[in-house]
């Protein structure tokens, strides 16, 4: 049950200082994130997608612009983020990692342990409660990270190339599961990737970032019903179209 409505990304610009030289990364980014939609931000490496996501997550400050929600500044407690490098705490077991967001919220010990077990079950990691992150595979680590993000029980989830470091097979099953979880417990999702196939498989809508400094170049609505099939005609057609238009505007190189 979501209480947060649409999110408004307004006039976001950001530049970095590199040895005294100012490098503009994001310029005047404007878009909306609709409630409960699965939005994919697509763009080449180093285009500033992650910077944009960190700005939305309030980890990083923009030079100008703001992230609004229902007419107010977007609050940190309404969102959580999943990182490409998992960012699990290696000193805690999987269960304790998942418990953390609830611990910070002041949920009682018994209650949060029970809930954390449920979330680990949701990502199909029953039996790994007492494992340490170093003892499990990359795909499993990312599942724990997703369970941890869900455990915050917030309305907005941000994913920063979460499956970028996984092998293709693991990636496919993770994508499938992520959609399943998202459909069972709807949230507003913003998902970053540089993989067109992944974008088309997951998204309700794809926003393409490109150029230097980056701005929004294209937007696609994906209306293929779920579960999607990667070798489906409609799937391939949209994929092709994005590829063409992206290549056309110099988004995908090589």
């Amino acid at each position: 049950m979501s209480v947060v409505g649409d999110i408004c990304v307004r006039n976001i610009s950001k530049s970095f200082n590199n040895n005294g030289k100012k490098i503009e990364v994001l310029k005047d980014i404007n878009f909306e994130i609709h409630k409960n939609e699965f939005l994919v931000l697509f763009g080449p490496g180093q285009c500033g997608k992650s910077v944009l996501m960190e700005i939305i997550a309030n980890i990083s400050e923009p030079d100008s612009g703001e992230i609004m929600c229902d007419g107010k500044k977007l609050r940190e407690e309404d969102l959580c983020m999943v990182f490409q490098r998992y960012a699990l705490f290696p000193w805690k077991t999987c269960l304790k990692n998942v418990e953390m967001p609830m611990k910070f919220k002041g949920v009682s010990k018994e209650k949060r342990e029970e809930k954390a077990k449920e979330y680990l079950k949701l990502v199909e990691l029953e039996g790994f409660e007492n494992s340490y992150p170093r003892q499990i595979s990359g795909g499993m680590k990312q599942r724990v990270a997703i369970a941890r993000a869900y455990a915050k029980e917030c309305d907005i989830l941000l994913f920063d190339e979460p499956f970028g470091a996984l092998d293709a097979q693991t990636r496919y099953s993770m994508e499938k599961e992520l959609i399943k979880i998202w459909q069972s417990e709807k949230k507003t999702v913003v998902f970053i990737t540089n993989n067109i196939e992944e974008a088309v498989y997951l998204a309700d809508r794809i926003i393409i970032l490109g150029g230097s400094p980056s701005s929004i170049t294209e937007e696609f609505k994906i209306e293929i019903p779920r579960p999607r099939n990667r070798s489906d005609q409609a799937f391939l057609a949209i994929r092709k179209e994005i590829e063409n238009r992206a290549v056309h505007s110099d988004i995908v190189s090589g």
């Binding site: 940190e76 959580c80 990182f83 705490f89 953390m100 910070f104 919220k105 941890r148 993000a149």
Partner: peptide
């Protein structure tokens, strides 16, 4: 990244230090 992760899962300053 631990600090970023701590922040997005809702740690306040004291929890960030201790946890």
């Amino acid at each position: 990244i631990y600090e970023k992760a701590g922040k997005v899962i809702g740690a306040n300053r004291k929890e960030m230090l201790l946890e």
